[in-house]
Simulated scan of single mutants.
Amino acid sequence: MKVIKREHPMTQNTLPGISYQALLLCAVSLSAMVLSVPGQAAQSHDEGFYLGLGLGYASYSDDIYSSEVLNNLLAQEGIQPESVASSSADGDDSSFSYKLFGGYRFNGFFAVEAFYADLGDVSGRLSWSGQGTLVDATVPQLWDVDFQAEDMKVEVQALGFSAVGTYPVADNFRLYAKLGAFWYNTDSRGGWVVDATSGIGGIYMTEGSWEHSNDDHSWLGAIGVTYTLSEAIDINLEWETFQDIDFQYGKNETSDFDVSVFNASFSYNF
């Protein structure tokens, strides 16, 4: 007996190695060094418009390749696991990112800022093998199942704004913190293959792929330090976190992840 099932790609179109602790430690350590610098607080750039460009390292949380994602992919194919022989997740967790931003300083302590950010992309795969039952199969017994979710890829772009609080701490140095909201677009794609055999010679095969685009909004926060290089130029080092970003996968499953970005930027003051 041989059962072969093939599914066509589905498209849904709508409308865009460093841990959190390590990134936060970098920012805190840098802040401590700044606080140790003697001198008077910088007085320039207290009011007016500014524009900037930032380049960074985006670190994705591992929720994209989590056991929840794997279990949902198995369930959508009607696979009910009974015993596990092996299970693995292999994927990128970081990417190059960049940001364009601009804002207005009302005084030396408060500003508002808007930005566009490309948070890069990550890719990977999930695999599972073991014994289980198959909802779509006609053989009422356990099957030896091999499941692969391959060429999974997620990319993120964001557009948002934030309130910025700053505090001068030494000559030409300021600490700052941000809190804001952003609207994002996630594009995701991938494919899956199921290859199963039964003890009495049954063969079950199915495969498919997905391509989704998802738009939503969430919140962000950041801490950083600014060095006034000249009357017109500032240099910034920043840790920023983008929280609860949704993405779609499989036939119509949804999960979320976070992205932390450690970036360096410069801004021009008008």
Rank of each mutant, 00 (worst) to 15 (best):
M1G: 12
K2D: 14
V3M: 10
V3I: 14
R6K: 13
P9F: 10
M10L: 10
M10A: 11
N13Q: 12
P16M: 10
G17C: 12
L23W: 03
L23S: 08
L25Y: 09
L25T: 15
C26K: 12
A27C: 14
S29Q: 08
S31R: 01
S31E: 06
S31W: 07
A32C: 11
M33H: 11
M33N: 09
M33Q: 12
S36V: 10
A42T: 14
A42N: 14
A42H: 13
Q43Y: 08
S44P: 07
H45A: 13
D46M: 06
G48A: 11
Y50L: 10
G52N: 01
L53P: 06
L53S: 03
L55S: 03
G56D: 04
G56L: 04
S59R: 01
S59M: 11
D62V: 02
D63N: 11
S66T: 02
S67E: 12
E68T: 14
N71L: 13
N72T: 10
L73W: 02
L74P: 00
S83W: 04
V84W: 09
S86T: 14
S95Q: 05
S97C: 13
Y98C: 04
L100A: 11
F101T: 00
F101W: 07
Y104K: 06
F106K: 02
N107I: 10
F109P: 04
A111N: 06
V112A: 13
V112T: 12
V112I: 15
A114E: 06
F115R: 01
Y116L: 08
A117P: 03
L119V: 02
D121M: 09
G124I: 01
R125A: 15
L126E: 03
W128R: 00
W128C: 05
W128G: 04
S129A: 09
G130E: 05
G132R: 00
L134T: 01
D136F: 14
Q141P: 04
W143G: 01
D146A: 12
F147N: 01
Q148V: 11
K153H: 12
E155Q: 09
F161W: 10
F161N: 02
S162W: 07
A163E: 07
T166S: 15
N172M: 05
R174C: 10
L175G: 11
Y176Q: 02
A177W: 07
K178S: 07
G180I: 00
W183R: 14
D187I: 03
G190W: 00
V194K: 00
D195C: 01
G199N: 10
I200A: 14
G202P: 08
E207R: 08
G208S: 08
G208I: 02
G208C: 03
S209W: 06
H212Q: 05
H212T: 03
N214T: 13
D215C: 09
D215H: 06
H217A: 15
G221Y: 15
T226K: 05
Y227P: 00
Y227Q: 00
T228C: 07
E231N: 07
A232G: 05
A232S: 11
I233R: 00
N236Q: 14
L237A: 15
W239T: 14
E240V: 04
Q243R: 09
I245F: 05
I245Q: 01
I245G: 01
F247T: 00
Q248Y: 08
G250P: 02
K251H: 13
N252W: 09
E253T: 02
V259R: 00
S260F: 04
S260G: 08
N263S: 15
N269T: 09
N269Y: 08
F270P: 10
